[in-house]
């Protein structure tokens, strides 16, 4: 990179990051603003945090979202991991194209379509077999599990295809059963991918507004639904406070995760170096 070109690239980079981060920074700053207006700084205060924590509706919604997030992420792991394994390791089988389609499509499918189609499925199922009775947490968890498992599958699959298959093959040659190979060898090796997949699913579930709105029922209002109805009319300082808390939590999580990842990467490289491969 030389001269003019690198100056251009560097300014593009700075502009891009400013564009990405300035709005978030403003939200954080204004969450501490005493006044209600974004434009006037009325002094530093934790007032909006207090308002936020005394808003019972908001707290209930946050609980709902956390519960749905944990359940969906865990279920998504149970469904997405075999999907990723099958795509990366099982070679050709009948229905492979269909499965890969069903794994790739949810990643880009507009949320309104997914939401509507799932709702209509639940309504039809209820008519036919009486389950799920009504809509609520269960239907949201099913909906979130479905699109999150696609993300898990992609993460697991890309981890597996970048991984050496010879250890698994050696175990197989030595007579280990497929199930045992998976739990003793493959699973520990893809553990970071599983963790990443779980966290990704949890975040996606926590963040989803559109799909949840379609399949939610009375009493299952999630945090994004609550936030959406209060920001529809404009800026609300309470939401600034909530946003700041979410950004803080995410930042801490990401920093910890990347430190862990760098460390395990280094360890893997070191062990590879010592074993001479």
């Amino acid at each position: 990179m030389n001269g003019k070109r690198s100056t251009f690239l560097f300014s593009a980079l700075v502009f891009g990051f400013a564009f990405l981060y300035l709005p978030i920074l403003l939200v954080i700053i204004y969450s501490f603003n005493e006044g209600k207006l974004v434009t006037v700084w009325a002094g530093f205060s934790f007032k909006w945090y207090a308002t936020l924590f005394s808003n019972q509706g908001m707290i209930d919604a946050a609980w709902n979202s956390l519960r749905i997030g944990v359940l969906s992420a865990t279920l998504a792991l149970a469904i997405g991991t075999p999907a990723g394994l099958v795509m990366a390791r099982f070679g050709r089988f009948k229905g492979r194209t269909l499965l890969s389609g069903m794994v790739a499509a949810p990643l880009v499918m507009p949320e309104v379509i997914t939401g509507l189609s799932l709702l209509l499925l639940f309504v039809t199922l209820e008519q036919l077999v009486g389950w799920p009775a009504g809509r609520g947490m269960t239907t949201i968890v099913i909906a979130h599990t479905t699109f999150c498992s696609a993300y898990v599958a992609v993460v697991v699959q890309s981890r597996l295809s970048g991984m050496d298959i010879s250890v698994e093959e050696a175990a197989m040659d030595l007579g280990a059963r497929p199930g045992k190979i998976f739990f003793v060898i493959t699973l520990p090796m893809i553990l970071p991918a599983l963790l990443a997949g779980w966290l990704l699913s949890f975040t996606l579930s926590l963040d989803d507004l559109v799909i949840a709105s379609f399949v939610a029922g009375p009493g299952s209002t999630t945090l994004p639904m609550r936030v959406f109805s209060s920001v529809r009319l404009g800026v609300s300082p309470e939401i600034n406070a909530l946003a700041t808390l979410i950004i803080l939590a995410v930042t801490i999580m990401i920093v910890i995760a990347s430190i862990l990842m760098v460390r395990s990467d280094r360890r893997a490289r070191a062990s590879r170096a010592t074993s001479g491969t």
Partner: peptide, 18 residues
């Protein structure tokens, strides 16, 4: 990656104030 993990809704909301 960091903004991608923070809430989509909140990132859209941030622009309302701007």
């Amino acid at each position: 990656i960091l903004p991608f993990w923070t809430s989509f809704l909140i990132r859209v909301y941030a622009w309302i104030g701007i």
